[in-house]
Design a binder for these strands. Structure first.
Lengths: 342, 342
DNA sequence: AGGTGTCACGAAAACGTTTGCGTGTGGAAA
DNA sequence: TTTCCACACGCAAACGTTTTCGTGACACCT
């Protein structure tokens, strides 16, 4: 049960000063070769590792990136984290992940906790509750304290900082256009309530696409779902007697739920109804029929966010007073759910 | 761009000593009420928050739990993390998550990094590569240094520490028994190569169930898949001309892939072939037909692991020389893929 | 021998806390 | 007036580093 060894202990053991040990381990010319070798051998034997905490305190930086996401059990967010980790590790940074569980309070707590010494900067996507409350003081304060913040996916326009987003409206437009170009005339949208920024934007894109094809926008074809956990009955009710021939869903779950319901209602996907989903996840890929989706390239988002943050962290502090917004391209992944009848 | 305020700055500003400030903020009787109020007001105004790094250094503890998992983009592991976070937050601990990406090297690096000051203890599930190499020195060293470690899911028998597992063999047996009790006679298993501990155990359970029903174990009904990423062709080949009436898959992906292939081969699930999967994830739930699964109760695992770890962390150091292995119950979740023909 | 220079190392401050103990000031008791 | 005590506060060490600067010893030159 040997405890971690410190510089002080090495110094004592070898009867030299702490500074000598520190310098020797850094191969400083100041120390004689003999002493250097001796100290290094000793340190290696006892598996000396500098204490990160002490280093952080001294250097006023932790070499750690804090990531705060609304849900940890969520495919899209985890892919983003994957991207962040990739870049972070390349550049010698660590990643701390916290989940806000879509709770405003937990988001605040996590940020304060990480801000008070544990991380040098943040990558975050705001909680649902935060978007609803429109209370961003904790983020603003963090920025004011000089900590770089990169927002992604669910961003806040009012906040001045780096952002990584996709063009949600454009992606939705692409999706809807795809349905239109297949000949669909009666396209429904399954979306979220308006305070979810991405839901709102995707709805906008849907309308834009319809206008492009000179198709009337009908309110009765729009379903705004509040509670994702039991969307099933809502969608079921909605789809009855609607006679839609295309569905655009703003996320995977709405899409597969709809597909299952169509199945029950004896309508075939894609023959009777074509379906496109936003978010290219595991569900869409393996569903039968597999779903055509708009891919958000989450890993890519994570990578770009990490790059932006690390740039800010390593810049000369003074210069970096400009903020960038990176827009990640979405792409249409065509699968069976929109296959043309041959 | 005001920087974080420190005790020292408050002290200077208010013309008292640092210790006075510290004590005042802790409401120490030593300091006069007047001074206390004044300091507290000032601190509140400037939004003073103690620096965690300094505290960690002083207290020799970080109040942080390190979690290392093989994959971050993986439903089961994220549910476990959810459980860990829940308990950790209740008890005032933070959670740092690192992914080893199933790489031995990255696992070692992450552990060393977290061990050198960033976390008080570990919850971990070992990487594939580590299981293959059978090199556990990094974990052993961490334990030797007096840091508590809790292993979960993919555990290492040789390591003496707390563990949280499920009874993989028993779960597999339950699954297979379920198929047998439905009348299946020719049950195939889709499993992993043997060095994956859980795969091996689940295979064992499958055999045990067969023996229980006095059914011959046929090697030709066992498929050990090495590369999960293109298991499709392997399974396709395997299933040809086999005439199986039941399939037990050790994970979701194998199960849905098999289901899709059966579909192509014009066999119906569950009428012609019944399917059970290990791991109750999002895929099984939403697949058509929805899959009967063995649920591992990941969140529960995470909770128990966190409890074990925190117990060790908060015990009087000296006492806690006994190690526990918690076995989480699995349960059969019946869905459409094993529905009896009516 | 005195001066100069180099080599090899040590002392100490700093990062931001907490906390045991020491101490100056004042008032009250003797 | 002296003594004593409580009150209210400050000092300093400690946690483990890094780094600047100082310094002792020795050798070499004149």
């Amino acid at each position: 049960m040997k405890q971690k060894i410190t510089l002080k202990q090495i110094a004592k053991e070898l009867d030299v000063s702490i500074s000598t040990v520190s310098k020797a381990l850094k191969d400083s010319e100041e120390i004689s070769i003999d002493t250097r070798e001796k100290i290094k051998a000793f340190a290696k034997f006892y598996n000396y590792k500098p204490n990160n905490i002490a280093l952080s305190l001294k250097n006023k930086k932790t070499k750690t990136i804090g990531v705060i996401i609304p849900e940890i059990v969520h495919h899209f967010f985890t892919t983003v984290i994957g991207g962040v980790e990739k870049i972070a590790n390349e550049k010698g940074y660590n990643v701390i992940i916290c989940s806000s569980n879509n709770s405003f309070d937990k988001e605040v707590i996590n940020m304060e906790m990480l801000a008070s010494g544990s991380a040098d900067g943040f990558i975050l996507s705001v909680a649902k509750e935060t978007q609803l409350k429109k209370d961003y003081h904790h983020i603003q304060e963090t920025i004011n304290q000089g900590m770089p913040v990169v927002l992604f996916d669910r961003v806040i326009d009012e906040l001045v900082c780096d952002k990584v987003i996709i063009d949600d409206a454009k992606g939705a437009q692409t999706a809807t256009n795809h349905l239109l170009s297949l000949g669909c005339k009666n396209i429904a949208i399954l979306t979220t309530v308006d305070y979810i920024s991405v839901g709102k934007l995707r709805t906008r894109g849907y309308f834009r696409a319809l206008r492009g094809f000179d198709i009337e926008e009908k309110e009765e074809l729009v379903l705004k779902i509040e509670d994702i956990d039991n969307c099933e009955s809502e969608i079921d009710e909605f789809l009855k007697n609607k006679n839609v021939d295309g569905i655009f869903a703003v996320n995977e779950l709405f899409a597969v739920t709809a597909a299952k319901i169509l199945n029950k209602q004896n309508k075939k996907v894609p023959q009777d109804v074509a379906v496109v989903a936003f978010t290219d996840g595991i569900l869409s890929k393996h569903f039968i029929p597999s779903l055509t989706t708009i891919s958000q390239h989450g890993e890519n988002m994570g990578e770009r966010a990490a790059m932006l943050l690390i740039d800010k962290l390593e810049d000369d502090e003074t210069v970096a007073e400009e903020y960038r917004t990176v827009i990640i391209d979405t792409s249409l992944v065509e699968r069976q759910s929109t296959k043309k009848a041959d």
